[in-house]
Simulated assay, not measured.
Amino acid sequence: MTYAVVSVHSPRPEHREAVVESMSRYSQVARQQPGFVWTGIVDDASGRLVGIAVWESIDHAQAASEPLMAEVGDDPFTTWDEQPIDSLRGTVI
Results as ranks from 00 to 15, higher is better:
1 M>A: 14
1 M>L: 12
1 M>D: 15
3 Y>N: 08
3 Y>G: 11
4 A>N: 07
4 A>L: 06
4 A>R: 06
5 V>S: 11
5 V>D: 13
7 S>K: 03
8 V>N: 00
9 H>F: 03
9 H>C: 06
9 H>E: 04
10 S>P: 05
10 S>F: 01
11 P>D: 09
12 R>G: 10
15 H>V: 05
16 R>G: 07
17 E>D: 10
17 E>F: 00
18 A>Q: 11
19 V>I: 09
19 V>K: 09
19 V>A: 10
20 V>E: 11
21 E>S: 10
21 E>W: 02
21 E>Q: 09
24 S>M: 08
24 S>G: 10
24 S>Q: 11
24 S>L: 08
25 R>P: 03
27 S>Q: 09
28 Q>S: 03
28 Q>Y: 00
28 Q>P: 00
28 Q>H: 02
30 A>C: 05
31 R>A: 15
33 Q>P: 12
33 Q>C: 13
34 P>S: 11
34 P>C: 05
34 P>L: 05
34 P>I: 02
35 G>Q: 07
36 F>N: 06
37 V>E: 02
37 V>M: 01
38 W>F: 03
39 T>R: 02
40 G>H: 03
40 G>D: 09
41 I>D: 02
41 I>N: 02
42 V>F: 01
42 V>Y: 01
42 V>A: 06
43 D>M: 05
43 D>T: 11
44 D>I: 07
44 D>T: 13
45 A>T: 13
46 S>L: 07
46 S>E: 14
46 S>C: 09
46 S>D: 14
47 G>P: 07
48 R>A: 15
49 L>W: 00
49 L>Y: 01
49 L>S: 04
50 V>R: 01
50 V>G: 03
50 V>T: 04
51 G>V: 09
51 G>M: 14
52 I>Y: 05
53 A>W: 01
53 A>Q: 06
54 V>F: 06
54 V>L: 10
54 V>K: 09
54 V>S: 13
54 V>H: 08
55 W>G: 07
55 W>F: 06
55 W>T: 05
56 E>H: 12
58 I>P: 07
58 I>C: 13
59 D>P: 08
61 A>R: 00
62 Q>R: 11
62 Q>E: 12
63 A>G: 14
63 A>W: 09
63 A>K: 11
64 A>N: 14
64 A>H: 07
65 S>L: 12
67 P>F: 11
69 M>I: 12
70 A>K: 12
70 A>I: 06
71 E>V: 10
71 E>A: 15
72 V>G: 10
72 V>I: 15
72 V>T: 13
73 G>H: 08
73 G>A: 10
73 G>T: 08
74 D>H: 12
75 D>A: 15
76 P>N: 13
76 P>D: 12
76 P>W: 03
77 F>V: 10
78 T>E: 12
79 T>R: 15
79 T>N: 15
80 W>N: 08
83 Q>V: 11
83 Q>C: 12
84 P>W: 01
84 P>C: 02
85 I>M: 07
85 I>D: 09
85 I>F: 03
86 D>G: 06
86 D>A: 07
87 S>K: 02
89 R>Y: 07
89 R>N: 15
89 R>L: 10
90 G>M: 04
91 T>L: 08
92 V>L: 04
92 V>S: 03
92 V>M: 03
92 V>G: 04
93 I>N: 09
93 I>M: 06
